[in-house]
Design a protein around this nucleic acid. Structure first.
Lengths: 217, 217
DNA sequence: GGGTGTGAAACTGTTCACAGCG
DNA sequence: CGCTGTGAACAGTTTCACACCC
């Protein structure tokens, strides 16, 4: 496979196309121009993105939605179920546990962990909270049946790296990190961060920017 | 202000620098090389990012942390408090209401809204939930005192655009959108999206990728 | 010496424009 | 004829390398 890698931005857009065409039940075929209208992504870029993975379109027609969604589903790895471990049963962790979209999209949180003695053993949204210290053992037993190599980290920032180390050691290959901390992991492990404060800061930067522009006029 | 705009990626990194130096209580001065170690961002890029906004460093020394954090705080608009409206009191909304980092960072959620009749009037985390229909009126009254132009949207995807329209009409200039939907807003309004499923899809794409590479070896 | 700030080079990602196909 | 797929132009971002300053 000498094919060069697609960028993270391309993958983000791919998912956006996927979600958008799933919602486009009003049509059977979609042109890049029409998809552009619905997603906000320029038509040329949509064609570039898609053509990177194959020739899914029909000249003169567009993209057949059934066909395209199947391809995208496969490319994004969403043509199967994934078992996910959640570490850190705070407010955010609980919110994700009950996030209804997950099930629909093939993500199944099947193990939850925390380190607080008063939480361990308790039940949350139907799951028994297990001790973070037992992660390796639990995931590896679990791993035989399913594919337990995605983890969601919703622990406080000061223990996030420690938790990440444990997860990597237990064979986790992909981490969705909600903690406001940079995680350092081996090359073969992928981390994506969701940092709410960072996104908020982007907004306040923008608003401050505008104000100082107003003044200078 | 003829200065060209900094990219969104630059702003993201700026916040990362800011957070990192706030945690770096062990030192008074930091070189771009040291900051690179702590953030994972290449030193040259750190210098480029910072030099875009001014000359904050001291040749031969590095960046004085007090000085740099003050500059970054100002640039990011975090040298003041911001009042934030939250729309949609579901699981995610509730998690954000109690997110402790917000207060520390100058974000204060001060109004919360929902459309469900059984929620309106109830109290959540110390706030009375108000009717989404009254947003304009409430925000504009509130707006006289503070700056009520940031909103967090945690409503279902199918009503997100409708809510965004109402918010824009009520004078909101910046939206943090958790709904899995593309929001179309006027030019002068900024939206940033947090899309958990999209981030998860990036992970499954990566894992699927790896598997097919393994096979081809 | 040591480290910033910055032009210039290298690279990456996006847009253009059109040949070619259905 | 309409729309895809794509090479080529363009734009934006990152890296390099070094002059200059403390």
């Amino acid at each position: 496979m000498a094919k060069q890698k697609a960028s993270q931005d391309t993958i983000k857009r791919l998912f956006l196309y996927y979600r958008t065409i799933l919602e486009s039940t009003d049509i059977k075929v979609v042109s890049s121009e029409e998809l552009a209208k619905r997603t906000g992504v320029p038509a040329a870029l949509i064609r570039k993105d898609l053509s990177f993975f194959g020739e899914f379109g029909t000249p003169g027609k567009g993209y057949y939605i059934d066909n395209l969604s199947n391809h995208l589903k496969k490319i994004l790895g969403m043509d199967r179920d994934w078992e996910v471990a959640l570490v850190g049963v705070g407010n955010m962790g609980r919110a994700l546990l009950t996030y209804p979209k997950f099930k629909l999209q093939g993500f199944k949180i099947s193990q939850i962990f925390d380190s607080a003695p008063d939480k361990i053993g308790k039940t949350c949204a139907g799951f028994r909270i297990k001790d973070i210290a037992d992660i390796k053992q639990v995931l590896q037993k679990e791993g035989e049946s399913g594919r337990m190599n995605i983890a969601i980290v919703t622990v406080p920032a000061n223990v996030a790296q420690e938790v990440a180390n444990i997860l990597v050691d237990a064979g986790v290959r992909a981490i969705l990190n909600f903690a406001p901390a940079q995680l350092f992991v081996p090359e073969n492990v992928i981390v994506t961060n969701i940092d709410v404060s960072n996104e908020m800061a982007r907004l306040t930067y923008f608003l401050s920017q505008e104000e100082s522009e107003d003044k200078s006029q």
